[in-house]
Amino acid sequence: MTPLTSQDMTNAVWTKSERSHNGADCIEVAHIDGGVAIRNSNLPDQVIFAFTSEWDAFTGGVQDGQAELLP
């Protein structure tokens, strides 16, 4: 796996939630080799990376209604 700083994000396809309010203040994700890149739509140059297993564990917890992950 190449570190995120070495990932070519040029062709990344960013997706945001359909619950986004007018496209502002959103978290966007891009599925890339080995994981998921995550960014704030207002700060597109600041990207963090989660490995696929980490992303699956997080989203699974949200889907299960894990209270600590939800507001």
Rank of each mutant, 00 (worst) to 15 (best):
F49K: 10
Q7Y: 13
F51Q: 03
L4Q: 09
W55C: 03
V13A: 13
F58E: 06
G35W: 06
L69I: 13
S20C: 00
S17G: 02
T15E: 14
N11S: 11
N42W: 06
S20Y: 00
E54P: 01
Q46F: 09
V47S: 13
S20L: 00
L70E: 08
E68D: 15
G65I: 06
A30F: 03
C26E: 02
T10H: 04
Q46T: 06
G23I: 12
R39C: 15
R19K: 13
A24K: 11
G60Y: 04
E18D: 12
S53A: 04
A50K: 14
A50G: 07
E68K: 12
F58G: 07
E68W: 14
P3N: 00
Q46I: 07
T52R: 03
P3A: 02
G34S: 07
P44T: 02
P3G: 00
P71S: 10
R39P: 07
H31T: 07
T5D: 14
T5N: 13
G65L: 05
T59M: 08
G35C: 05
I38P: 13
I27Q: 08
S53K: 02
F58Y: 14
I27V: 15
C26S: 03
G60E: 05
K16V: 06
S41C: 08
M9V: 13
E28Q: 15
H31S: 05
T10W: 03
Q66W: 13
E18Y: 11
C26Y: 04
P71Q: 10
Q66A: 14
G60L: 08
S17Q: 04
N40T: 00
A30N: 04
P71N: 08
T52Y: 03
A37V: 08
G61V: 07
F49A: 10
I38W: 12
G61A: 12
G23W: 12
N40M: 07
S53W: 02
G61Y: 08
G65A: 06
S6W: 09
F49P: 04
E54Y: 00
G23F: 11
G35Q: 04
T2H: 13
G34D: 05
Q63V: 05
H21E: 05
N11R: 13
S20D: 01
D25P: 02
G34F: 04
S53P: 03
R39I: 14
L69E: 11
G35P: 00
A50H: 12
W55L: 00
F51M: 01
T5L: 11
C26L: 02
V13S: 13
I38M: 15
V36L: 05
G23Q: 11
F51R: 04
V62C: 09
S53E: 00
W55E: 02
S20T: 01
A67W: 11
V13D: 09
L70G: 10
C26N: 02
M9W: 09
F58W: 13
G60K: 05
M9H: 05
A67P: 10
D45T: 12
T52F: 01
G34C: 07
H21T: 05
R39M: 14
W14P: 04
T10K: 00
T15D: 10
F49S: 07
R19M: 12
Q46V: 11
R39K: 14
G35R: 06
V13M: 08
S6E: 15
Q66T: 15
F49Q: 03
V29R: 11
